[in-house]
Nucleic acid binder design. Structure first.
Length: 288
DNA sequence: TAATCGTGGTG
DNA sequence: TCACCAAGATT
């Protein structure tokens, strides 16, 4: 039944796709890997400028691998989840050391790189190398939940049922374009909060819309307050290290977060995560 | 499995 | 306004 989705969605994509730099034909596998990791839980609009700067600065894995990891963290800026910067740096070194300087093309080899999970491995294997994989990101999962399963939202964690469904929908030809088209539909039309069904190419056969767009019934979907959390504290501390050149005295870190217990905990966790170093007693810096 | 990991735009 | 959410991964 799902194959009826292919033509309308592919036609819609051909007309409406955004022109994103990592989708251009000249985008290298490295450029695509960098984009995919930057895009994890991060909107396109915020990724664009950072990705462009990274590509100019580090056009190859070898270029990034030659830098200390702290430089990756510094140029990550305020993208969020800065361990991704360390992951990309570790990817660059692993690719240089173990893959002859080229981003691997197989799903399994990609999956073995730091920070590359099921989604990212499938995405890079597809978009950089033309492989045929089920690419299950939040957009695809939501589109399939609605169009096929008739539910407003997918389960919190990806299920075997979802994966089987996505695999059953893989087209015989050009699976990568199918994948990016469904993702784009989810990003631009079949959005989480205010879906634009009037603009949807498959509104006529969407199970959720045909059922009258019933509200999600299961348990509450979320709960991620941020103010006052360790995450916010870590962000403040790391911003100080990023904006400094070289080591900073601990007093500079003490100044940005009042709660001492929480601040110490956060600082220790940054060091434990490899996002900060203690070159001398009482001073901190990005990892050199 | 569920908690944790940043940041900023938005309905 | 503020809770929600964005091309997830890891432990």
């Amino acid at each position: 039944m799902g194959t009826a989705l292919h033509t309308p969605i592919l036609d819609w994509y051909a007309e409406k796709a955004r022109d994103l730099p990592w989708r251009r034909p000249d985008a290298s596998p490295w450029a695509i890997l960098v984009s995919e990791i930057m895009l994890q839980q991060t909107p396109v609009a915020r990724v664009q400028p950072v990705w462009t700067e990274w590509m100019e600065r580090w056009p190859t894995p070898a270029a990034l691998a030659a830098e200390p990891p702290g430089e990756a963290v510094r140029h990550w800026g305020r993208l969020g989840y800065p361990r991704r910067a360390l992951n990309l740096h570790a990817c660059a070194r692993a690719i240089t050391a173990d893959h002859d300087g080229r981003v691997p093309s197989s799903y399994d080899a990609l999956r073995g790189l730091p920070g590359v999970g099921d989604y990212t491995a499938a995405a890079v294997a597809s978009f950089a190398y033309g492989g045929s994989h089920a690419v299950l990101d939040t957009n695809v999962r939501r589109v399939l939940a609605r169009a096929v399963r008739g539910e407003e939202y997918p389960p919190k964690a990806t299920t075997t049922v979802e994966r089987r469904l996505a695999e059953s929908l893989l087209p015989a030809l050009d699976a990568p374009t199918w994948a990016v088209a469904v993702m784009e539909l989810g990003a631009l039309v079949c959005t989480a909060r205010a879906p634009r069904c009037a603009d949807c190419p498959v509104a006529g056969l969407c199970a959720w819309r045909l059922a009258g767009r019933p509200a999600h019934d299961g348990p509450e979907r979320r709960g991620q307050t941020y103010a006052g959390t360790d995450r916010q504290c870590r962000g403040r501390l790391l911003a100080v290290l990023r904006d400094a050149h070289g080591a900073v005295p601990k007093a500079a870190l003490d100044a940005v977060w009042a709660d001492e217990v929480q601040r110490e905990r956060a600082l220790d966790s940054l060091v434990a995560d490899g996002l900060a170093e203690v070159p001398d007693e009482g001073t901190y810096r990005l990892p050199a």
